[in-house]
């Protein structure tokens, strides 16, 4: 009897849900795919954003971590999803500019997505082990040129931003064939990449400032360059521009929200408004500041322009250095 009543009430609820379909977007929970693992930079950022979005949306925002292949698995899942706005992606520098620039066999391209807004910028910092003889970019470059093969840099894998960043920085400072003269050592993840420098497996790493903050404040790692236009609080290192390489300012991490290419205009507009409101949220701003990223909402057009510009820069670098992965 009780079971029956339960089924009836369920049926009623289901009916209620299906009649709600007639309403405007959103009429059902929205899934936000995070193409990286729980606890990573993208995950933390997307979860903070979802906390800020929850009071704005009248339907739940469900976060789904879909990890694998450096962000490609989750991104491909969204690229192939329906454009009804119920499957969105937390797109990241690794999955959307580095990977497309480097990987021939990637199951998607930038054109498979419609960006509704980039909301976060992560400064990139290059660091070496504290107490290392190499204590500046100049010394690093000198070491690479005088003793090829003795310098190595760690990354969180082939096609990660860290991989490209190491090569890009050396290339900008005039090292020829940086991938021949310096060794790229891929590690399992961003944390491991920083640890590898700390314990001497690799000479330097260029990664998001948030991944290095605690090492730097504990005097375990020494920052040698930041890629922001202004000096970065907590990182006692010169900016790329002050070292004469303003072009390295292109090298920043970012997170944005994107849908499949055929995302409906209705959903895109709704998301634009939501992001506008969420990025005003005090708690969200405070949290993002603490984890070391800058909230900077771009309009859909600005986002596309920004992402494409970074992609073109990376693409050219990949071509010049023959970094393409078949």
């Amino acid at each position: 009897m009780r079971v029956n009543a339960f089924i009836i009430s369920l049926g009623a609820a289901a009916l209620a849900a299906s009649s709600a379909l007639a309403q405007d977007y959103p009429s059902q929970p929205i899934q936000l795919v995070i193409p990286y693992g729980a606890g990573g930079a993208t995950d933390l950022s997307a979860r903070a954003l979802s906390n800020a979005l929850t009071p704005i949306l009248d339907r739940p925002l469900v976060l789904a971590n879909r990890t694998g292949a450096g962000g490609a698995t989750g991104s491909a899942a969204v690229a192939n999803a329906d454009g009804d706005g119920y499957t969105m992606l937390a797109a990241r520098v690794g999955s959307h500019t580095v990977n497309p620039a480097m990987k021939e066999t990637l199951p998607y391209t930038l054109d498979d997505f419609r960006f509704v807004g980039v909301y976060e910028i992560n400064p990139v910092v290059c660091a070496v082990r504290a107490g290392s003889e190499i204590d500046s970019m100049e010394a690093l470059v000198q070491q690479v040129q005088e003793n090829p093969g003795t310098v190595s840099f760690s990354s969180s894998g082939v096609g990660s931003m860290l991989h490209l960043a190491g090569a890009m920085v050396l290339d900008a400072f005039g090292v020829e064939n940086p991938l021949e003269n310096a060794t790229h050592i891929p590690m399992g993840g961003g944390g491991e990449a920083a640890t590898a420098v700390l314990q001497g497996t690799a000479t330097f790493v260029c990664t998001n400032s948030s991944a290095l903050a605690s090492f730097v404040s504990n005097d375990q790692l020494q920052p040698i360059m930041v890629t922001t236009p202004e000096p970065l609080e907590g990182f006692d290192a010169p900016t790329a521009a002050s070292l004469g390489h303003p072009e390295l300012e292109q090298l920043v991490g970012w997170t944005g929200i994107a849908g499949p290419a055929d995302l409906s205009d209705e959903a895109a507009e709704a998301w634009g408004e939501w992001l506008e409101q969420a990025t005003q949220n005090e708690e969200f701003l405070a949290y993002m500041k603490k984890i070391g990223s800058q909230v900077d909402l771009m309009s859909p057009e600005e986002s596309v322009e920004f992402v494409n510009a970074q992609y073109e820069t990376f693409r050219k670098l990949v071509d010049d250095l023959d970094m393409r992965v078949e």
């Binding site: 606890g39 933390l44 944390g191 700390l198 605690s214 090492f215 404040s217 504990n218 603490k290 984890i291």
Partner: peptide, 23 residues
């Protein structure tokens, strides 16, 4: 301040949110 596995990496995040830097 080095995370030994994924779980401790998340816990580091909790430290940092509260302005604590393990190490």
């Amino acid at each position: 301040g080095v995370p030994g596995d994924v779980i401790t990496a998340i816990i580091i995040g909790a430290f940092m949110v509260h302005g604590l830097q393990p190490g």
